[in-house]
């Protein structure tokens, strides 16, 4: 017997009627796209886990308070929330001072033995820059965002244009250059391409 596909809109309706398993189905259906997009945007697994949770908590709040009505566009809406949270997180991280001091002005990291962490971190960074993930991170921000939203989040160029506030042709052009730049980086590092 063929399993019947239930649309996101129908699942949201059932969820609001009190069926918790409808949310489970929605998460299962979209978690990989949403999480991969967040992870590639923020480039930190722990931060990505936090943003993923916060995204769905916000979604639940909006749903239960009746603020969300466009049932057929659940994924673009969820990704809009995730993207905004990821951007806020990146801005926050960029605002953080590089040296944290205590009340007496001493570098607080001097109290901690960070030698092993640094060694491990260096190894991760080394590995990352030679991987596809590392290449994606090296793309100009605007190209990276379109690539993630089109390829991993599976949004159409029209949806990306609406989400980012840019012209659709600009978004297509950025995707074109993102792929060209990725290819160049891969060829330079001798990642085999057919």
């Amino acid at each position: 017997m063929q399993k019947q596909f239930i649309s996101d809109g129908a699942l949201l309706k059932v969820y609001l009627e009190g069926n918790e398993s409808a949310l489970e189905t929605l998460i299962k259906r979209h978690k990989s796209r949403i999480f991969t997009s967040i992870y590639l945007l923020v480039n930190d697994r722990y931060i990505a886990e936090d943003i993923f949770q916060e995204t769905f908590i916000k979604i639940i709040h909006c749903l239960k308070s009746g603020k969300y009505r466009d049932e057929d566009k659940f994924l673009p809406w969820a990704l809009r929330i995730a993207r905004n949270m990821a951007i806020d997180s990146i801005r926050q991280r960029n605002r953080m001072p590089s040296i944290v001091t205590d009340s007496e002005g001493n570098d607080i990291f001097s109290y901690l033995d960070v030698r092993e962490v640094s060694k491990e971190q260096t190894m991760i960074e080394k590995e990352d820059t030679s991987s596809l993930h590392g290449f994606i991170n090296k793309l100009p921000a605007e190209q990276k965002e379109v690539l993630i939203l089109r390829h991993y989040a599976d949004l159409s160029f029209k949806e990306i244009a609406e989400l980012t506030g840019h012209n659709i042709n600009t978004c297509i052009g950025r995707m074109h250059y993102a792929l060209i730049n990725l290819r160049k980086m891969m060829q330079k590092s001798l990642v085999p391409l057919k």
Binding site: K31, F35, A48, L147, H151, L182, R183, L193
Partner: peptide
């Protein structure tokens, strides 16, 4: 080809 390669990245929470 690029699309195929990009498909190799898929993360799960």
């Amino acid at each position: 080809q690029s699309k195929q390669l990009l498909n190799t990245i898929s993360e799960e929470p």
